[in-house]
Design a protein around this nucleic acid. Structure first.
Lengths: 252, 252
DNA sequence: TCCCGGATAAAGTCATACGATAGAAACGGG
DNA sequence: CCCGTTTCTATCGTATGACTTTATCCGGGA
């Protein structure tokens, strides 16, 4: 799941990072609910063998993302879901790892559907030649590698990321990680032999690229809408398949 | 600028919080550029009288928001703008405080324009009676208080926040702080005697409320677009006024 | 019953120490 | 004189113990 240089995310080699990761997954997965939780800082040494320093730094890290709130005397509590920063790249990654529930995927796709077409429109209007070259290179990366291969996924992500970069709107670009996470998630779900949707998706991408290349904003937006909707439908189909599969397994 | 219970943000009474705030403002304002910066952890005691612990926790906090990256042995550097999490509530607040430049405001308005109409559509489709009551109460709060008064601003923010809550889409709701920050910013710029736009804005809000009340998604989206565009235009006018004002002051 | 104040527990802060290593400086061979 | 190797130092990461601050809880007094 960890990807190359796309987002730096949390460094897993630092001790505080491992602690933060562990706590985050526990929180997001629902194992720790919005309540008192989080063992106090004296006990922590017994629970996991880590110094108070590292533990506190992990807590500060998570505090910054709204996952926990620490108050003197009362303890460090898991924050209510409403205050989590769900668009933070780390939080998204942890979600991806801990809690792959359908509602969340649908919500993220909904967000994509609102944001990506507009982003594509801006990209078509504002792209430089370098932007276009990057988008095109990413598209080619999707065509030359086998479906659902690691490199193909990376190219897919690069495609969407490059479009966001071409918008020249930094706040908007901050949504790119959310979009990429959604894509990764949906690709991860797909059966690797699902060729039909892959081909369709390739066509969708090419059409978007074409519109951006023509600097036709409205067309780019419309085609991006189509792309996202196709991706959503195929993902929902997969989820439905999984659900019935699990149900039938459950009956066994 | 600190507002009641809307977002908890960073607690300013903790020492590490003050340090984080100081560093963040320095980074975002551009006083520290993306380079080595950040005085090393031993010197910090001379610069500001604070222990290494507090300083390190502040750095961890900022690391989580992508503002700095600490690499072992090589130093703690200011991260490139591209990796900042500009949609984080704290980062937005710091921006508001440190770097009120026009481009950023325009970018945020652009984002609003993409997101808020869609949010209004969802709100119209999914709102419960309680949601509607909250939105309506917020609207009334805008009418009963004097223009641009603190309570009026709060009511305005509540109006938009309540719409996001009614979407029942948590990731989307995470954009509410960004929208609120934009609104606060634009209201902050306005001259308090700017009655014309205030009245127009009130009408815009009422029309959105009406559409949501009717559960008419398309209408709500269209009217929200109108609201955002009006707000953008009036803000740009203000900015232009300021610019020429400053220019004429500069000539004196 | 209500209010006030002290006891208390937990987070916050500080000082110190040691380990690991990236990067620079010094060194030596070609 | 240049370049690769070695050494050295600066700086972050982690650990530990002590002390401070803050807020909760509880009991006593009005």
């Amino acid at each position: 799941m960890r990807d190359s240089s796309r987002a730096r995310m949390l460094s897993p080699d630092r001790l505080f990072g491992q602690v933060a990761h562990k706590l985050a997954v526990s929180i997001i997965s629902g194992a720790s609910r919005a309540g008192d939780l989080l063992p106090n800082e004296s006990d922590i040494r017994g629970e996991i063998s880590v110094s108070r320093t590292a533990y506190r730094e992990a807590v500060k890290f998570l505090t910054g993302k709204g996952l926990v709130e620490a108050r003197p005397k009362s303890g460090t509590r898991v924050a209510p879901r409403g205050s989590w920063n769900l668009l933070d790249p780390d939080v998204l990654a942890w979600h991806f790892e801990a809690d792959p529930n359908e509602k969340f995927i649908r919500d993220l796709f909904e967000l994509r559907l609102f944001v990506e077409p507009s982003a594509a429109r801006l990209a078509a209007q504002r792209r430089s030649e370098e932007d276009l070259a990057r988008i095109e290179a990413a598209y080619r990366g999707m065509t030359v590698n086998p479906p659902y291969a690691e490199l193909t996924v990376q190219a897919d992500l690069s495609f969407h990321e490059a479009i966001f970069e071409a918008t020249r709107n930094p706040p908007l670009q901050c949504l790119a990680p959310a979009v990429c996470a959604t894509i990764q998630w949906s690709l991860f779900l797909k059966a690797p032999d699902d060729r039909f949707f892959f081909t369709a998706s390739l066509v969708d991408h090419e059409r978007v690229l074409d519109a951006i290349s023509q600097r036709d904003g409205d067309l780019a937006a419309a085609r991006m809408s189509g792309l996202v909707i196709d991706s959503l439908n195929s993902t929902l189909r997969l989820l439905a398949g999984r659900a019935s599969e699990n149900a039938s397994r459950g009956r066994d």
